Computed example of a mutant assay.
Amino acid sequence: MKSILALFPLLVVVYLAFFTSSHGKEFQKCERSAYPPDKHAAVPLYEVDLDLPPLQRWAPLMKEKGPKIVAMVDDVKNLIRSVVSEKLYEILIKNLDKVATTLPYPFYEEMVGISALSGLPLSLVTMYNIFYEAFTLCTSIIAQDPSGYLYHGRNLDTGLFLGWDTKNHTWRVAEQLRPLTVQLEWKKNGTTLFHSISFAGYVGVLTAIKKDRFTLSVDKRFALNGGFMGLLEWILFDDRDQSWVAFLTREVMQEAKSFAEAQTKLSKTRLLAPVYFILGGMQPGEGCIITRYRDNFDIMNLGSSQTRSGSWYLVETNFDHWKNPPFFDYRRTLANQCMMESGQKNASLSLLYNVLSTKPILNKETVYSALMVARSGRIQAWTRECPDPCWPW
């Protein structure tokens, strides 16, 4: 069984190669009528009070969502144990305990609180808070209309290789994360600092807006060492002079006062793992894709001659903008096609949602779609389903 599971990624690629050649034409039509979304799929709103002690900040959410978090994490734990040896699993858990105790304030304290409130061991709460960086594929789009008004949309896709349900054609983890998807209003001194779309019990930030300032989404970036080298340095060499991606973005959302300040912080902070930051602002032209290495960066700005898209929008999936995506991934190509077909005169939230609803940009991994406008402070998200025929990612 373990040898079969080890070959699963290769089998999926082979399947996609066949799927692409036999069914690709079904996914070339841009969606035109998905917006407005079903209101019943809207993500519920909760509050995070930063004036509370870190141990208590997640209590209301854990009271409601705790059992579902436990079920999801237990499932992931069992999936990992089915692939690796028991000895390797025990080493992993031991090191996750060590990682947790070394995390900066207030992340460690918040995770201790989540552990106490949910009944999950701290090691598994830590796994839940870092697994995103290993198992995600996403799409982010920023568009500017003719008047200079900016729109930001994203699909968050996750659960890759974590339990494919052959009967229902779904990823088990993606299915379990949908009811855990929440909109969070982060408050301090009675004032709203920012909003984010997140998962209950996840203390970092992946999708967020700061009204009258900027919008932000995070897409995974594949690299030879991924985040493993940074994690090993953190564990083995006590190298703390690096930031966890989702912790850095939360700090930026709490502290940055402008698009420019956020851009600088996201570009120049040393990271534990490579990543793409997609940042939108208030003024015309304030949009960029920040391609991060652990120490260095590349910035592609809205309207840049570097873009493979039009001058009025940016598209990022999970591949460097100066490279072609692999043959089995149509998402970026199709997103560009749909944006160009519609044209800048139709730039809007409805356009972004329709593009994000076009298969395979919408796929079996898609947990939610989010739309944001910094100038109005508007943020909305909806959990997604992808009816067959639909790509695994």
Rank of each mutant, 00 (worst) to 15 (best):
G303S: 04
P360F: 09
K345D: 14
S304Y: 02
G285V: 11
I361G: 05
Y368A: 09
P326I: 15
L279E: 06
A370H: 06
G310T: 11
N324T: 14
N354I: 08
S305H: 14
N296K: 14
E286M: 06
N296G: 11
E365G: 15
S350D: 15
V315F: 05
N318C: 07
N346V: 05
N296W: 12
T366R: 07
Q283A: 13
G287E: 06
I278P: 02
S342E: 13
L351Q: 13
G281S: 09
Q337W: 05
N324R: 14
L334R: 12
C338T: 01
I290R: 06
N301H: 15
V367G: 04
F277G: 04
Y353K: 10
L302C: 04
N363I: 02
S369W: 10
E316T: 07
D320C: 08
Y293P: 00
T307D: 04
A381Q: 01
M340D: 12
G281R: 06
G310R: 11
T333G: 03
Q344F: 07
G287N: 05
T358M: 03
S342D: 09
G343W: 09
S305K: 15
T307P: 03
L362H: 01
F277D: 08
A335D: 11
A347P: 08
N346P: 05
S357R: 10
L279S: 02
N354Q: 12
G310K: 10
S348N: 09
R292K: 15
K364V: 01
I278H: 04
E365L: 15
S342M: 10
S369T: 15
A273W: 00
P326N: 14
T333K: 08
V355D: 04
I299C: 07
G285Q: 11
T366D: 09
N354L: 09
L279K: 00
Y368R: 03
G281Q: 10
L349N: 14
V373G: 02
K345F: 12
Q283M: 11
R375S: 15
E286R: 04
L352H: 08
S305G: 12
F297Y: 15
H321W: 13
L352W: 10
Q306G: 06
P360I: 07
L314K: 03
L279C: 00
N318R: 00
I290W: 00
S357W: 01
R331E: 02
W382Y: 15
M339Y: 01
E365P: 04
T307H: 09
R375W: 10
I289H: 00
R378Y: 15
P284W: 03
E286I: 08
R331M: 08
V355S: 06
S357L: 05
Y330P: 12
R375C: 12
E341A: 15
L314G: 01
N336A: 03
Q344T: 08
K323N: 14
E365R: 13
S357M: 12
P325T: 12
H321K: 13
S311Y: 11
